[in-house]
Nucleic acid binder design. Structure first.
Lengths: 193, 193
DNA sequence: TTGCATAGTTACAGACCGGTAACACCCTAG
DNA sequence: CTAGGGTGTTACCGGTCTGTAACTATGCAA
């Protein structure tokens, strides 16, 4: 009946979680703070007691997304401790699963598309986050003993990014269906050198 | 001094051209019809005499983008008549040039990120356009005598799409710098089979 | 019980949004 | 010269947006 998020937690957490969900589904400019607070079972005043503006709320949501992404990487290490190659394949599977999860692309990329002001506070966060993810993937490839780790990581990264926007434009039946095949082929090809 | 677009042409054309430019730079929801008409040197009433709603204007802008993209493909055929492989390489160069043109990604993809309503009239146009471009690239690869043309075309397509969003998130110094290298490497690899 | 921080409520400000009505203007075709 | 279509101008409608003020209710801790 309730939204699940509303349950019993502190208002700040409910607002953050609800905002993340609504920004993801409807875009940032497509959601007003009134709608967020109502869905979070609270009100606008409370939101502005915890976040000094909508922009700050946006930034906080993006940071929360990054934290979730970080947890994902740690899960790879837990599942395949020390086996970097297995972790790389796990990343491919996880990425493919995300493609079929819902028709929305990457929250960071979508935010970058919407927030066009070059000095918007969110842009800095987005850039940091994307660079951190890139670094993680490069490190993983290198530690897996693959030559030209940067090139492989960047290629995989662009493929995944492209697949996410492809899902958003033409749906899950488009070029993104071949993502796993492409990624695995690339990894095999780089390892063979 | 003036915007260039304003010059002397029929109001409808000025509105369309100005809207395309502003949507591209500031996003769709980031631009109001008042701002468009003012920049186009006209007024809101005239806009609504030519377009029945902002949504229709959006759709018309996307179609205009598609027309420009179509002209690009024809230019390849004119420059390298019959030489499909040369046209494919020309596509790679053109794509790379677009990456460094400005920090904004693909208008279609950005529109898809913003217009989240599943039955928004623009979504249909976006899907058609993206599918048309995919078909063109597949045909080009096949006519260039490459085996697994679909897989190569889809891979190149995802790489390019990913590179465009990468430029938008981390800038031109990110993974997208390797785009040409990746694309050329893929083409060579597919041709060798 | 008293005191205080947190949260909810109502109302509002000021700006902007998409869209329309009514009317004045010009340019060109007949 | 005149009629009419395309255009410009002004004012407006109802709605929504972010953000704030002032006040009330709640729950917990000393």
């Amino acid at each position: 009946m309730t939204d699940g998020v509303v349950e019993r937690s502190r208002p700040r957490d409910r607002i953050l979680e609800t905002a993340r969900d609504m920004f993801h589904k409807h875009g940032i400019k497509g959601v007003g703070v009134d709608a967020i607070t109502e869905a979070a079972g609270t009100n606008k005043m409370t939101l502005y007691r915890h976040f000094e503006s909508k922009d700050e709320l946006i930034v906080e949501c993006l940071r929360a997304n990054a934290a979730k992404a970080g947890a994902m990487w740690e899960a790879f290490e837990v599942e395949f401790p020390g086996d970097k190659l297995a972790q790389l394949h796990a990343w491919v599977r996880k990425a493919a699963a995300m493609l079929n999860a819902d028709g929305r692309g990457c929250d960071m990329a979508n935010a970058a598309a919407e927030l066009t002001e070059p000095d918007h506070p969110a842009r800095l966060v987005i850039k940091e986050l994307k660079e951190a993810q890139r670094h993680r993937l490069v490190t993983l490839c290198r530690d897996a003993g693959i030559g030209q780790a940067e090139l492989l990581a960047d290629t995989l990264s662009l493929l995944f990014e492209g697949a996410r926007v492809s899902v958003q434009t033409v749906g899950t039946e488009g070029p993104s269906t071949q993502f796993v095949r492409m990624a695995e082929g690339l990894i095999a090809s780089f390892r063979a050198r």
